[in-house]
Structures are given as C-alpha cells and as structure tokens.
Amino acid sequence: MIDLTLDGRPVRVAAGSTVAAALAIGGDGTSRTAVGGARRAPLCGMGICQECRVTVDGVRRLACQTLCAPGMQVETRP
C-alpha cells in the first residue's frame, strides 16, 4: 500500500494506483475547478482531455497518467 496526501488529508491506495484513483478513494473524485466555477473530474482516463490536471508536489500533472508514490502531496484546489 502507498500513503500520500490529498488536499492535506491522508489517503492509502494499492501499489500501482493512479492519482486519478486516489482522488476517488480519498476525496470526492474531482480534480479541478473549471473557469465557470464548477468542479470537474477525470474524463478520458488516458491523457487526452486534461480535465484531471492536479498539482503533485508543486508541479502540474495529469492524475490519470501519474502513479501514486509514497509521500506524494496532491492538491486539487490550489
């Protein structure tokens, strides 16, 4: 199992899980706030739509294409 934090709260996921999976396991599944203010969640699951972009350890990454790593800090509401 891997321990990381999502918006400051601890999350535990199975090894090999994507950050997109962690968003649902440790939160409400959403990844970002759209221009109009609504929350969005991963859509395509394969690195195309960019809906899943989050901040991982200070760098913008795609949640669906990034694997969870121990100690990772994921932010969805910067």
Binding site: V13, A14, G16, S17, T18, A20, A21, A22, I25, A41, P42, L43, C44, G45, M46, C64
Partner: peptide, 13 residues
C-alpha cells in the same frame, strides 16, 4: 467519463 475512459480509470485503481 468516456467509455474507454471508465475502463482505463478502473484499471488504474
């Protein structure tokens, strides 16, 4: 989500 999208997300945990 997408249909293939849901598949990919499930595979990813």
């Amino acid at each position: 989500t997408g249909a293939g999208g849901l598949q990919a997300l499930i595979k990813g945990g």
